[in-house]
Amino acid sequence: MKNWKFASLIEEEKEFKVEGINIWNHYWHCADRKIEVIGPLSGNPYLFNEYEIRSPEKTINFVVGEFSEGRIGLYLPEEDAINAQ
C-alpha cells in the first residue's frame, strides 16, 4: 500500500510537472480507486481519485481532488513527492 504525500495546490491548465512531465499535456487514466488523504491546511480527511499518466518513458501515479473553495490538491507517492515542481 502506498503512502501519499501532499505535493501542491494546482490550477487547471497551469503547468505542473511530475518527474519532468507536465500533467496537463496528458490524458489521466482513472484507477477507479478512492484514496484517503489529509488536507494540508485543515488536517481533514478527503477521498480523492487516483490517476495514472502513461508516456513512452514512464508511468506516473498521483491522487487529485478538490478541496473547498475550488482549490485542487495533488498528492504523490511519498517516495516521488520530492520530484514534483
Rank of each mutant, 00 (worst) to 15 (best):
M1N: 14
K2D: 09
W4N: 08
F6W: 03
A7W: 06
A7V: 02
A7R: 13
S8R: 05
I10F: 04
E11L: 13
E11G: 05
E11V: 11
E12R: 00
E13N: 06
E13L: 05
K14W: 03
F16L: 13
K17P: 08
K17H: 06
K17D: 01
V18M: 12
E19V: 12
G20Y: 13
G20M: 10
G20H: 06
I21A: 08
I21S: 01
N22C: 13
I23G: 09
I23C: 01
I23M: 12
W24P: 07
W24A: 13
N25F: 02
N25D: 14
H26A: 12
Y27L: 09
W28M: 00
W28K: 07
C30R: 14
C30V: 03
A31E: 10
A31W: 02
A31K: 12
D32M: 07
D32Y: 01
K34P: 01
K34V: 00
K34M: 03
I35V: 15
I35P: 15
G39M: 15
P40G: 09
P40V: 07
L41Y: 01
G43Y: 09
N44K: 14
N44V: 07
N44S: 07
N44H: 11
Y46R: 04
Y46W: 05
L47G: 02
F48C: 04
F48R: 04
F48K: 02
F48N: 08
E50G: 10
E50L: 10
Y51E: 02
Y51I: 15
Y51G: 13
Y51K: 03
E52G: 09
E52Y: 10
E52N: 03
E52A: 07
I53K: 14
I53A: 15
R54M: 06
P56R: 08
P56M: 14
E57Q: 03
E57V: 12
K58N: 12
T59R: 05
I60T: 10
I60L: 05
N61R: 10
N61W: 00
N61L: 10
N61S: 13
N61Y: 03
N61C: 08
F62R: 15
F62M: 06
V63A: 08
V63D: 12
V64Q: 13
G65L: 04
E66P: 00
E66F: 11
F67A: 11
S68V: 12
S68A: 14
E69A: 04
G70N: 11
G70W: 00
G70L: 07
G70H: 09
G70P: 10
R71C: 03
I72T: 06
I72D: 02
I72R: 08
G73A: 08
G73M: 15
L74N: 14
L74D: 10
L74Q: 11
Y75Q: 06
Y75C: 09
L76P: 00
L76G: 04
L76T: 02
L76A: 03
P77E: 08
E78C: 07
E78M: 14
E79I: 10
D80L: 12
D80V: 13
D80G: 01
D80C: 06
A81H: 13
A81P: 02
A84T: 00
A84F: 04
Q85L: 07
Q85V: 11
